[in-house]
């Protein structure tokens, strides 16, 4: 529920089992600055060379953008890089992403941080269940940049 009190734990939520994580449990990442080279590299690497990411003047003629902006998918990828805990653990798989919205463009020089909150838990079988996380991406001014619901399958026990 937006605005509800946050519950924090010392451990990263990805190290906690399905039954250990609780509704409202929240994880905040440190910020990461987006460089102009990041946007160029992502465009070249993925092939997504849409003009808004390549051409400052063309992007500025678009009513949505102040100039050249970062790819929305780059923001999602950086977000994952910020919140993921890389070790083998109770999180088994990323199974989906719902209700994604990009609210505010991100330009080179902006920085991005992520807030991850456990929204809902649904047991699936005798071994694991689905965790629905509410994810918000904010910039250096705490403006909401993007919002979505992330789905993961989490084991009842640690490996």
């Amino acid at each position: 529920m937006p605005g509800a009190s946050e519950i924090t734990h010392a451990d990263h939520p990805f190290t906690r089992t399905f039954h250990e994580v609780e509704i409202g449990e929240t994880f905040h990442t440190p910020p990461r600055q987006i460089a102009s080279e990041d946007v160029a590299h992502f465009a070249e690497f993925t092939g997504d060379t849409f003009y808004a990411h390549m051409d400052d003047a063309a992007a500025a003629r678009n009513p949505f953008f102040p100039g050249r902006v970062a790819h929305g998918y780059l923001l999602l990828s950086f977000a994952a890089g910020l919140f993921v805990q890389p070790d083998e653990g109770p999180v088994l798989a990323n199974t989906g992403l719902d209700a994604l919205r990009f609210m505010k463009p991100v330009v080179p020089g902006d920085s991005l941080k992520v807030r991850l909150t456990v929204k809902q838990k649904t047991p699936r079988n005798e071994a694991y269940g689905e965790v629905r996380w509410h994810v918000t991406l904010t910039n250096q001014d705490d403006d909401l940049v993007a919002e979505y619901e992330l789905l993961t399958m989490n084991a009842y026990s640690k490996p």
Partner: peptide
């Protein structure tokens, strides 16, 4: 209707 904490 209520506060976020109560609704949660």
């Amino acid at each position: 209707q209520g506060s976020p904490d109560l609704l949660t």
